[in-house]
Design a protein around this nucleic acid. Structure first.
Lengths: 226, 226
DNA sequence: TGAAAAACAACATGTTTATGCCATACCCCC
DNA sequence: GGGGGTATGGCATAAACATGTTGTTTTTCA
């Protein structure tokens, strides 16, 4: 993620929307790429955005699809987006629904603009900003939760090993893999036998220390994210 | 609650303990009523405190009882206290344990003193301060909680929108795939059978109109390129 | 209360991958 | 002229994946 963060705002009340827009876009950290009055409008305008938004600030009480109802649609289109919900309500039900639907944070509308900015930056940094009372609900709910299995993810492997360089042919074939092609299609594309593809892949796996197509692509994904 | 807040500090490392003590007690908002190097010492000294502490800042990595293990004892004696855990570790397991044991917040030891003070005030006000990454774990766990709301019950809007939204579970599993995991590993991570993983993947393929892991990942790669 | 959606699970069948081990051919270069 | 690296091709086997069908259970909602 790099400066300025591509930001989208979804809010139906024109005055609030304008206030948010004006304030946030005046900040050097943000770039407003999309401002909409409803989830439907947002999804419709999405293809026209110059840059896909990384940060989305969405009201919950929207006409049509509510912010929470719209979240799955947004996340399907922008899986990497951090969505912050904005609401006048601080009730546990709404908070839980929103977080379960995939929001990373939940802010109240009485949040001062300066703090809102801080929260947005916080979210961009991988945090989960919540207004005071809201965080409390979440922690409370936690205390009552049954013991769960740890669901970890942050795997940071030492891929800084001496990288054995791929040959040109190998890189071509890796591009094919990353394009989602099967061995057969790669073989066709380069007019070679599928056995040859296999052998190149084999060499690539050894050099990159992976042992499946999925790992190879996960590699590419990780590289891309910085 | 009124000023100044009665504060207790539990930390075994003398230098850190003194730093916290000196800084926080120099603040007009706090009054240090108890400083201890272990849970045991804290409980022993508790009767001697002039005022029962309302706010407790406790290390997790303590000799003897750990901070988390000691929490139930503390809360039995001081049911109204707000306990903030302090730790060098940001792993999900420790965070969950501490919150389930009744901590109201979880801070990392690299938190600047000024922020620490803010967090303490925040906790006193009924909030649940958490360091950035930590809050994220909690929200993640929420999104992955058992029994998810449908949230998108057969909305007729579906044919207007290009993308049929993925459910939370489906997105989780897609994250697994994009992380390079095999079905087996995904099944293990979420404690479900490999057949169930297959079924979710099947639904994802239908919704995203792909028909192989490679295409799915190629999709992710394309989205990521901007 | 009953239909719908979501998560979970099993079994079957065919395809694609991963990886072993092997061989030929070209090129460069010491 | 032989040794290393690269590209090509083949065969065999085991594992992983894709896909069809069919269930149960729980939660949600009209």
């Amino acid at each position: 993620m790099q400066f300025p963060f591509a930001l989208a705002i979804i809010e139906d009340q024109a005055t609030i929307r304008e206030t948010l827009h004006e304030y946030l876009c005046a900040q050097p950290e943000f770039r407003c790429v999309l401002v909409a009055g409803s989830i439907e409008a947002f999804l419709e305008l999405l293809p026209t955005a110059a840059v896909p938004p990384q940060l989305i600030l969405s009201d919950i009480g929207l006409p049509g699809l509510t912010g929470t109802q719209g979240l799955p649609f947004i996340l399907t289109r922008l899986p990497q987006a951090q969505v912050l919900m904005l609401s006048v309500y601080a009730d546990a039900g709404r908070v839980f629904e929103a977080l379960r639907a995939g929001a990373v944070g939940y802010l109240l509308k009485n949040t001062p603009l300066a703090q809102l900015k801080e929260h947005l930056l916080h979210a961009a940094a991988g945090g989960s900003p919540m207004s005071p009372g809201v965080a409390h609900y979440v922690v409370q709910a936690f205390a009552q939760m049954p013991a769960t299995a740890p669901l970890n993810s942050g795997i940071a492997l030492a891929d800084l090993l001496p990288a054995e360089p791929l040959t040109n042919r190998e890189r071509e074939i890796v591009r094919g893999i990353e394009g989602g092609l099967s061995y057969k299609l790669i073989a066709d594309r380069y007019c070679i036998s599928i056995e040859t593809v296999r052998n190149h892949i084999r060499a690539v796996y050894r050099k990159l220390q992976v042992n499946s197509k999925a790992e190879l692509m996960a590699h590419a994904l990780k590289r891309q994210r910085r």
